[in-house]
Design a binder for these strands. Structure first.
Lengths: 173, 173
DNA sequence: CGATGCATGTAACGCGTTACATGATTAC
DNA sequence: GTAATCATGTAACGCGTTACATGCATCG
């Protein structure tokens, strides 16, 4: 269900082809929110068109089809955004590793945690730098939710880094 | 792949039946790390047995089969825990909603964020209370990674709550 | 003897990944 | 002309969910 709304959401900003949507996934959504490959996107677009939520606005070179969201599609998207979602099921390989780390000798578990944190920290540094001059409020006064969401992602990474200090202290004590 | 190691990890603590493993998922792993239903667990156990990573240690009433991890299984588990995993692909419906919230009028977006935060806060309160007297180091001196991981989960929820204040301030400003 | 909980499985379907497959256009 | 990029699709497979299906044991 989520891919459907990811596509409707992107098309609500501006019309785009399947190819462009694939790029947008890779460029923005992928890091913090959702990922999809073209092999999943094309069939899904066909389905959305069949259901009347989007339409082909223009056909270009090389068989390129530019899709636009329809009134019905926009309505469906708004509904989904507003409707409270049930608690997400967690599914994180990272967390799973943590849970099972008791199967390793203490010293090795500690080393793994340190390695995880180093990874998170370099991720934070890289993204902070890339986001340094991004304003969460666009020049037109409209909020850029991608930037806002990115800030949340960074803060959650930071929580991991801080936690690790505490966790290692627990292990030592 | 992850379900395999979740099962091996649980069986490395103590032998258990498919039924018990299903309960353990529901009780501990489910909240922060991984989820699986019995309909997925039973076939996976059969596969692990066929591959020699676990074995039937005992058969009880009602067709109950208690599985135990084998030496080979333990080795495989350790390998997986130690081997650095490639960056996980993000897939969070929650984050996706945030990204797409620009499709809502500002006031409504704000309301959605407030609702999300209220949910997170009550989750934090409930879990903090439940975890209040849990010591991350067990009475035998061995670290309880479930508790450590839970603390991380709580801190990440807390990061969300803190972020929301900031985000709403941005929207107002 | 009836409800609840223990205990195990299978089938159908949907979503996501990897790999296969093709062809047009543009830049060098 | 040839390499890179644009552009769209299909097929096979694996993982996860929902629903279907069965039967034994225990407690009251």
């Amino acid at each position: 269900m989520s891919l459907k709304y990811a596509l409707l959401g992107l098309l609500d900003n501006h019309p785009a082809s399947g190819y462009e949507l694939t790029q947008e996934f890779a460029a923005s959504l992928e890091r913090w929110a959702w990922h999809a490959k073209h092999s999943q996107i094309y069939p899904e677009l066909a389905k959305l068109e069949k259901d009347g939520l989007i339409e082909v606005a223009e056909e270009g070179a090389r068989g390129r089809k530019t899709y636009a969201i329809t009134r019905v599609g926009r309505e469906d998207l708004r509904q989904w955004l507003v409707q409270p979602s049930k608690r997400e099921r967690m599914r994180s390989e990272f967390m799973l590793r943590l849970f099972l780390m008791g199967s390793l000798p203490k010293a090795q578990a500690r080393k793994m945690i340190e390695r995880m944190v180093a990874g998170a920290q370099s991720e934070i540094d890289a993204v902070r730098e890339a986001m340094a001059d991004e304003d969460p409020i666009g020049p037109d006064g409209r909020p850029e939710f991608g930037i806002l969401a990115g800030e949340l992602g960074l803060r959650q990474y930071q929580a991991l880094v801080d936690w690790a200090d505490w966790a290692i202290e627990q292990l030592e004590g």
